[in-house]
Design a protein around this nucleic acid. Structure first.
Lengths: 411, 411
DNA sequence: CCATATAGTTCAGGATATAAACTAAATGGT
DNA sequence: ACCATTTAGTTTATATCCTGAACTATATGG
């Protein structure tokens, strides 16, 4: 459809603006309108023209390119009984997807996420990765990834990219996990080429909390679009979404709520510090305070957590006090974070979600004590995302990248 | 030079991309190159073409527009003894400026800042604004502003906009000071039209700490371009600069370090909370702890602060302990903030700068205790900005806005 | 006085968006 | 059966803008 005279040149990152950039921006603009329409709500070229404020002529041309790229498809004409020529529906191509993966302390997982952000299939494999060589874990995940790729092929699904989430600080450019204390990893460069056969597709590496925050973003009401996601796992991570974007900070490690100081005279933390939130509200800290510490040998963490729930249900003092203390400290940390980030919505995920009943009263009360002037507007939410949150977020973020630069797939 | 067929239409905010946008972006690009060159280093059109990666032809055309806008000027030909046609120097027009102002607890101020960010003239007028009607303060500031405008006219300086900094939370769009506890203001809408006669020029309202952070930005080394500015005045404010931009948060109130909780069992704060940094390291808190509290009636804060310095110099226990305690808590708050924002540079300004000698050891030590893993890379700096910081930052930020959208002044 | 070198301008050409005219394909009334 | 009406989508003429190449302008050096 388009005549491409200027041949594919790698385009220097800080190239100046020329008319071609307008096309790139408008391709993304049209795609954003299509993606933004509520699922299953097919838009016509005319609808897109109205919503994007581009002319029908431009939209026709842009849509032609997007069809060629395979990112969208036409879904036949729509006779709605109205007068006039029927419209041709345009939707995101359901046969395109991105593979999301996660390495966590107790499991690895992988799944396929389509362009609308829907999880199509996934698989979670329990696996103790703590203190295991990173290469071995990657090999195991590679296995899982292959299965997913075969599943995709069987359904004629084309995989456009991949994302991996790990519970630690990462350096995306070098695919390196800088620190993952709960995995016992330090400065581990991951051979992500093993995870996706197609080498030219985009692959990204995320912190688990950031990935989960990105997944949570899909579930938020417009009024709560800016929020802090607090991931309570073995460690406590955080991911901040401001203005529909992840705020990652200069090195991409922003939002680390777990090491906010909540008790200046508190216990030593694994980070070397003292009185960090993690020392009170981390999974291990809660279990220990609830008398479910490592004393019980040969009992898995999952089993100990089950016992914690039982103890809470039956109203056993140590457990209830442990969680209330965690909630109070969570309130202190959240009060500070809300002030610093200027967000009013905080979403608790991971094991915090399951503790909502016992955690929320203490956290709310603590917030009222430490930040009464903002406690009124504060919205504390608990995430419905389970173990698939991180992989969905990682994949969806890559989807977002693709939808933002569709020109890469055009012509 | 340019034929403007499409006449000035207000341009809808979310207008789609058309070829005209390329021009807007490239005007800004060229201007950024000129502004980015070290002061006094005159760039030729050819230099600009090289640095901007635009062609000489484009640059010539763009420069013509910028000359017409008055944002830049030619400064004659440059014979450097080399072969070839001599180049024509291009610099930011030194006859253009922005007026910056500040309302603080003890003074009001105004000054003229040129397009390169240099403070040309300024005036600081001591004035007790606490609990004074906002309108009266604006009237006084209006007086000062008029003097500045006359000074500008006398020097053939054209004022292109203005910025005002206040010690409190603001809502820029409505020019409202939402909260300024130290001024005793709440929900005060400022009649900023009184401050600048030209109504069509840009006028912005800033939080004092944010404005100071923007001023501090000009002084930072490239390696420390991301930083948190901590403004210690009567209250403690903060401003975060990430990626050369102010991170203001959803409502523009991010960075409020003063109400980070540093002592869960601490004193009540004016914000209604408890154990906020301000209750330990705020000016009043330090003075009180140093036995220089309000007991001494009829003594101005400035006098009490002088006495504090004397007490510190002569090694009086209560004063030294008070500042050491403040420094320790500052370390706690900064540890948390560094974790949350992922910044490694923190710049202390306001009265903290004068306390450097006594504050720094305690803060450094505290940071090592509470965040040893990042204390090594942490860079704690003290700002040389005095009372003019906020007004410079407010004005310079407006300059930045102008330089980012030069097309408004073209044609 | 001319070769050389660098700065800056002019001009033809291609890409893009826009507006208006035009074609396509339905409904509904007579 | 036929045509007016309505809406969807395409075609075409035009203007803007950047680019690359050719060209002009102005210096130095032999």
């Amino acid at each position: 459809m388009r005549k491409t005279t200027a041949e594919a040149q790698p385009a220097p990152s800080n190239a100046p603006g020329n008319v071609g950039d307008v096309r790139k921006a408008n391709l993304a603009r049209v795609l954003a309108v299509i993606a933004g329409a509520h699922s299953e709500h097919r838009l016509s070229r005319a609808d897109i023209a109205t919503r994007s404020k581009l002319t029908k002529a431009s939209v026709s041309s842009l849509v032609a390119d997007l069809l060629e790229s395979g990112l969208i498809i036409e879904i036949g004409v729509h006779r709605d009984g109205e007068r006039g020529r029927p419209s041709v529906g345009l939707i995101l191509n359901p046969a395109r997807c991105v593979i999301g993966m996660e390495i966590n302390v107790d499991y690895i997982s992988a799944g396929l996420v389509d362009l609308s952000g829907k999880l199509l299939t996934h698989q979670i494999v329990p696996r103790l990765n703590r203190a295991v060589n990173a290469e071995q874990v990657i090999d195991a995940l590679s296995e899982l990834s292959s299965q997913m790729q075969q599943a995709a092929e069987a359904q004629d699904l084309k995989i456009l990219g991949g994302g991996l989430a790990v519970p630690g600080l990462v350096d995306e450019k070098s695919y390196t996990v800088l620190q993952a204390p709960n995995l016992g990893w330090e400065a581990q460069t991951l051979d992500v080429r093993k995870l996706l056969s197609e080498t030219k597709t985009r692959f990204r590496l995320f912190n688990e909390a950031n990935a989960s925050a990105l997944a949570q973003q899909q579930l938020m009401e417009p009024a709560e679009r800016d929020f802090l996601f607090v991931s309570g796992e073995v460690g406590i991570g955080g991911g901040l979404i401001i203005d529909a974007e992840l705020f990652a900070g200069p090195q991409g490690h922003a939002g680390e709520l777990g090491h906010v100081v909540v008790q200046p005279e508190g216990k030593s933390c694994s980070c070397g510090g003292r009185g960090c939130l993690e020392t009170v509200a981390g999974q291990e800290a809660i279990l220990t305070a609830a008398n479910l510490g490592v004393a019980a040998r040969g009992v898995s963490r999952q089993q100990r957590i089950e016992r914690l729930y039982q103890a809470l249900e039956s109203g056993q003092e140590p457990a209830n006090i442990a969680v209330a203390d965690a909630g109070k400290s969570l309130g202190v940390a959240v009060a500070s974070a809300m002030r610093l980030f200027n967000v009013s919505t905080v979403v608790f995920g991971g094991h915090f979600a399951a503790l909502e009943r016992w955690l929320l009263p203490a956290t709310t009360s603590s917030l009222r004590t430490y930040a009464p002037s903002i406690a009124g507007q504060a919205k504390l939410r608990f995430s419905p995302l389970g173990q698939t949150g991180a992989l969905i977020g990682a994949a969806h973020s890559v989807v977002g990248d693709l939808l933002e630069s569709p020109h890469q797939l055009v012509g």
